[in-house]
Design a protein around this nucleic acid. Structure first.
Lengths: 233, 233
DNA sequence: GTAGTTTAGTGAACAGTGTTCACTTTTCGA
DNA sequence: TCGAAAAGTGAACACTGTTCACTAAACTAC
């Protein structure tokens, strides 16, 4: 029983990988459509024509399986955000695109994104897997996605477009929170984008753009009288 | 079986209310400490010394019970945000306090706040309870909390402190998203406030204040060259 | 090629969940 | 006091994740 990453070059190893992948594929299919509550081990087993207990030869628990889905999703998210922040365009366009990509990728796979933030921090030390310090966090896909934001802030500051008084990591955390929040509201609040008194026909994309513009505005260099209000830590 | 709001002036009615409240109290106690996963009907029944099926004489389902907890929490949230936005202080202080109160109240009851946004919108019409239009939403406690934000934006615009080019409801939605996101990250990302490369000693409150300041900055009146970027819908 | 040891896969079972339903007991109004 | 309505119960149903003894296949070493 070796569910991690050892050599898989022997025929048996390939066969094992094939089965494992088929489990993940089936799980992905169900999960994307119905989320965590729709995905049961027994249903999964039925879908791939194995017995429920067989799955436990490939994954230690349901949680580990779902963690794989979440990590894979975050890798994708990180990749897309990174790509759009490296495009060959003026900085402000790239910055905006980067923010918009984050929210759109998240909302396109609502169950994945929602599940990725569904566990709650326990104040005790019962979850040893949680990255405690900065370096550990930065090896996570979440951490990598976050570092894209930090780089973006720093580049904006270097260009003189963003306020240099802002601590880049703080500003990036603030940005992350704002993006995350919009994604969550779009996912969890029914018809969030249509929540307008006169029932305007604004699309989700329109509002995401509006939000991104507002965030960028907050980061921009300000008259001294305003900027001095911001404490950097 | 009448689980809603009829007259409760008769002795039997009072007794019924007492039992119902004791169920809610027990549920609240467990839920605040362990969240939805720790709260089972059987455990709840044990705690109040009734049989599990007795609970179904008072609540139609576990979901209805939890919905009550969530609504009560949101009423409290709304109340606190409203209070801090009506204090006798300069506008900017009130605005900041209002934003900070939202996040702090949310993070003080992590399971309540997380649970309040845990259901996912179904594109079909399977959830008839979801408020579809603006007016219906505004009768919700969520809606009322939201309207506090709208009022705040409008007051800031009237005072000339916030950019009048911003559509108030859009700006409020953007604000809500940013606050919601910070609350969620603090709740769901372990040690979010301590996520600093040099392990600075910034507290959660410090960061919430930083975030609020940044948001207010984004709303403030801008030079025309910047403000024209914002589309209002 | 055969013996022995891993590995793959299974079915039954355990402990738990929300929920229902026939049933008894209590309460209360006429 | 009688009868109806409500309160409360225990057993059962259909699920869930997970474990474990067990068999069947596959690989390693002689």
């Amino acid at each position: 029983m070796q569910t991690d990453i050892p050599v898989e070059k022997t025929p048996a190893g390939r066969r094992r990988k094939r089965v494992r992948d088929s489990i993940i594929a089936a799980a992905e299919k169900v999960f994307a459509r119905e989320g965590e509550s729709g995905l049961s081990i027994r249903r999964l087993a039925e879908e791939i024509d194995y017995s429920p207990s067989a799955i436990y030869k490939y994954f230690e628990s349901k949680e580990e399986l779902i963690d794989q889905l979440k990590e894979a999703f975050f890798e994708r998210l990180m990749d897309r955000v990174d790509t759009s922040s490296n495009a060959d365009r003026p900085f402000e366009d790239r910055a905006r695109a980067c923010l918009i990509t984050y929210v759109e990728t998240a909302t396109n796979r609502p169950y994945h994104y929602a599940a990725a933030f569904s566990s709650i921090e326990q104040k005790d030390e019962c979850t040893p897997a949680a990255p405690k310090n900065w370096d550990e966090f930065m090896t996570t896909n979440k951490g990598k996605a976050f570092s894209v934001l930090v780089n973006m802030v720093e580049e904006g500051q270097a260009l003189g477009m963003f306020d240099r008084a802002l601590e880049p990591v703080h500003a990036a955390k603030s940005l992350w929170a704002s993006l995350h929040g919009l994604a969550q509201l779009v996912i969890h609040v029914p018809h969030f984008e249509r929540l307008i008194p006169d029932d305007g026909s604004a699309t989700t994309t329109d509002f995401i753009t509006f939000h991104a513009n507002l965030l960028i505005r907050g980061l921009q260099a300000q008259p001294a009288s305003v900027a001095k209000d911001i404490k950097t830590g």
